[in-house]
Design a protein around this nucleic acid. Structure first.
Length: 316
DNA sequence: TGGGTATGTCCAC
DNA sequence: TGGACCTACCCAT
């Protein structure tokens, strides 16, 4: 599950591969049949991502709003961006099946634990001879062009909105560094006016959009900041530095498709971090393991309803 | 086969 | 604060 970086990548994927031709919109699962009918046959003219929310604009001024929640995923297939369709096979006739692999550019957002597995199983039959491919699993909505298909599974939100409703949704969100490059002031203000732990504020999408449980823990460690520090006690320069580090990590995540939070790594260390989902972070999901800096066991506690990880010695 | 887990959010109490 | 909801996989039994 996607924190902000994957949603931006998904929006980019739609911009690359789905804008232009009319789109057949359906709900194989049957739980979005009425909504699909309102969009069916119209072209996508724009895709946007704000925080963890994605919006697709259709040519009759209706939008599809999607929030993937904890389990949501898009599976893309067909003549999608990069190569894997050879020149002689263009047009989607021998489209490449898409795996839910975190490292694949074609499938973004599946639960991390399932990704490798799903990719492995789908790579057993990487070429499909039937177009369009059969939906896999519970597909809430399918977007199909002559050459590309996107299947949405397990979203928290999938609904049709007017532009007014889109604007209202976005207005409720805090700044997203990729949407609001000048959002630093808003972020600092949002943080410093509240007597709430910074570890809680970073998860609040009205304070800053796009941060989830992994980036929260990693940002706080990178800043060597005690998660329980009240926002109003954060010096302005510390708050500014948090925003800038988030902007940096988000950009890095969008470019690489991975949550690379130990970005100082080089060579073999970097390759190991990329390869191992469990050996990739400073503190996230490392309860009881030695801090990579000082060796103190990483602590864990529930904050804002989610497991928070931190080094009790380095983060003060 | 069934319980546990997951990068999220909302709502009732 | 706890539960509900969305889906699929992992692992122990």
């Amino acid at each position: 599950m996607p924190e902000g970086h994957s949603v931006h990548r998904i929006a980019r994927q739609f911009a690359r591969s789905f804008t232009g031709p009319p789109v057949a919109v359906s709900s194989p699962q049957g739980r979005f049949t009425a909504g699909a009918a309102r969009l069916d046959g119209h072209a996508i003219v724009q895709s946007r991502a704000v925080g963890k929310q994605m919006f697709l604009e259709f040519d009759h001024h209706l939008w599809l709003r999607v929030h993937l929640g904890m389990y949501g995923a898009w599976d893309f297939a067909g003549d999608i961006a990069v190569d894997p369709v050879s020149p002689g096979e263009r047009g989607g006739r021998a489209a490449k099946v898409v795996g839910a692999n975190e490292d694949s550019p074609w499938s973004i957002g599946a639960p991390r634990r399932t990704r490798l597995r799903m990719a492995e199983s789908e790579q057993l039959q990487p070429e499909i001879n039937v177009w369009p491919p059969e939906p896999i699993g519970q597909v809430r909505v399918r977007l199909l062009t002559p050459v590309a298909v996107a299947d949405l599974r397990g979203p928290t939100v999938c609904e049709v909105q007017t532009i007014e409703e889109v604007d209202a949704t976005i207005a409720r969100l805090g700044p997203d560094p990729l949407v609001d490059p000048d959002g630093e002031g808003r972020f600092v203000e949002n943080v410093r006016r509240r007597n709430v732990a910074i570890g809680q504020l970073l998860m609040d999408q009205e304070v800053v959009a796009g941060i989830g449980n992994v980036y929260r823990a990693e940002l706080l460690f990178r800043a060597r900041l005690d998660p329980y520090t009240p926002g109003k006690d954060l010096p302005t320069d510390v708050a500014r530095a948090l925003w800038r580090d988030w902007a940096y990590l988000l950009k890095l995540g969008v470019e690489t498709g991975q949550m690379l939070t130990m970005d100082g790594l080089e060579g073999e260390d970097l390759e190991r971090a990329k390869a191992s989902r469990d050996d990739r972070h400073w503190v996230y999901h490392r309860t009881g393991e030695p801090c990579r800096v000082c060796g103190t066991p990483i602590a864990m506690a529930v904050m804002a309803g989610r497991n928070l990880y931190w080094c009790p010695k380095d983060q003060v």
